[in-house]
Amino acid sequence: MSILSARIASGLLKRNVSLEQVFATIADTLPTCKVRNLAYSTLSILRIKPNGDCHLIEYDNPLLLRLKQGKIAPINRKKREIAGKETFESWFRIEPEDLLVLFSDGVLNAGVGGLYRLGLGYHGVINSVIDWADDYDYAQPIAERLIEVVDACYLGRIGDDSTSVIIKPRHPRTAVLLTGPPASAADDREVVAKFLNYQNAERIVCGGATGNLVARELKREIKTSLQYEDPSVPPTATIQGIDLVTEGILTLNKSLSKLKSGGEEWRKEPRADGATLLCQALTRADRLIMLVGTAVNPAHEEFMSSLQLLTRTEVVARLQEVLSQMDKEVIIEKY
């Protein structure tokens, strides 16, 4: 039911439905004990706007924790009745380096009567999270480690169900990817100049001829690595001032299949083949600009169909679909 409620809430919030209405919609469906009039289900809904403004409604859940520079920053809550439920409502603003911790009562009570007389408690949660908050630049592993602590508190046995959500705000990240030479060689210089104009973005080049083009315009050397981390992916290269330089068609196709697989192994992959590095770079970004050259390499056409490879424009369009599903903004410009 928690997954269903979360899906309903996120769907409504995407449609700009107000937080009160979202809460009321879900609250109406929550079962209550008719004898004791107690909720079987509890709920916290948080909306964060791009400028960091937060609106939070909590109903019978452990209270959200806000950490600023490793210390608790209390939130001013007000009681408010919504849809017949007594809730806590709060408004606050978060900034980069803050950390928000949301969790279910299974986390708060972890180990009760066993490892801890009264369970992990707020202090246990805070201490656990503070210890690792600076170890990661994204939230997922912090949430995973909190659940590992909970599992340890239950001594690995089945206990109460436990959920943790960690939010680590940061400024949006942009990446710009240049792949393929333009259809007309006369546009080479203009397209490369456009690519290089992105200063506060991770700059990625996919393609041998494209790499040569960028190196030529920058008047810098392109150095190709001798290391084959994965025999199915050609080696990467380096150009001073460019963050990632990979081969084109094979690397893009391989990256697409990694992203579509649903697995996350490539996130932690110690190997640094071009496709793994490209997946990591694409998913690091919140906004992606893909500058796609449409020149066709006749030598590639021969093997494209026999190897069931997608063409450059096809693979880029599929990447746009997959990355958009990850809530990334993807802009494609063709030349």
Binding site: G208, L226, Y228, P234, E247, L250, A299, F303
Partner: peptide, 16 residues
């Protein structure tokens, strides 16, 4: 040794 797409598929690794 050329590390481009075609050369990769045509067996440049055997040369290396």
């Amino acid at each position: 040794v050329c590390a481009g797409t075609s050369c990769h598929l045509l067996g440049n690794q055997a040369i290396v």
